[in-house]
Design a protein around this nucleic acid. Structure first.
Lengths: 115, 115
DNA sequence: TTTTCCAGTAACCAGATGGAAACTGCCAAC
DNA sequence: GTTGGCAGTTTCCATCTGGTTACTGGAAAA
């Protein structure tokens, strides 16, 4: 499941869908947010949650989302250093949309169990 | 708002999000479905609804969605011929997710009215 | 002492795909 | 007779962007 967003196109002014997709769009973004919906997670945990996302993309997705204020990144002073990602308030606003997508997907799987 | 899907990656077996995004993903797909949510529309109407979508992409998106069973395409025997697109039952199943995205976007616009 | 884990980063490649612009055929209206 | 609308199609181009592989450096476990 790959979802991309082109960076040069910003949200259409005043368009709700655009506003939301500007944060949700981007390859694997929904998966990452879904993983974080249960609570904070570390980088390696996210990687294990979504083994199909390469490290490079995972990193860039997390950086994007951090910059847009959707999630926070906290480096713990441990050794080896661990990093904790968590949804911000803004990020939590996105959850209803994510849940709805998952709900619809679940219903689709019930009606047609092929992959 | 640009949303892409790579065709070579199919839905992850048994993953609800994947199953749903497989249909929702693709550049401008949510916009097209949103336009159709009120009822059937003709090609030129869709083009006017979403002037930022090029004819080429609009066509390919409609063909994709038709092939996936999300919408139906009916050529009316008029001259010049008109073509009517409408959501199928499957397509209507997607609407809750679309609505949810729009809802979240609306809420985001309220909290931060910048484009 | 070698391996593993942590959280990445850098370099390079290939393919997908959206954008722009031009063109189609047919009919109706002006 | 030419303009306009319908519903596209075709071509070419640029670029975006994700995948893969290799590498980092320190600490702890084997």
């Amino acid at each position: 499941m790959v979802l991309k967003v082109r960076k040069k196109v910003t949200a259409l002014p005043g368009c709700p869908m655009s506003k939301c997709m500007d944060l949700l769009g981007g390859c694997w973004t929904p998966e990452v947010l879904w993983s974080l919906s249960e609570g904070p997670r570390r980088f390696s945990e996210l990687r294990r949650d979504c083994p199909f996302i390469s490290a490079k993309v995972m990193t860039s997705r997390l950086r994007d989302l951090e910059q847009r204020g959707v999630l926070s990144r906290k480096v713990m002073p441990t050794s080896p250093p661990t990093v904790e990602y968590a949804l911000t308030e803004l990020g939590k606003e996105l959850l209803p949309a994510i849940r709805s997508i998952v709900d619809v997907g679940t219903r689709l799987l019930l009606r047609d169990p092929t992959p």
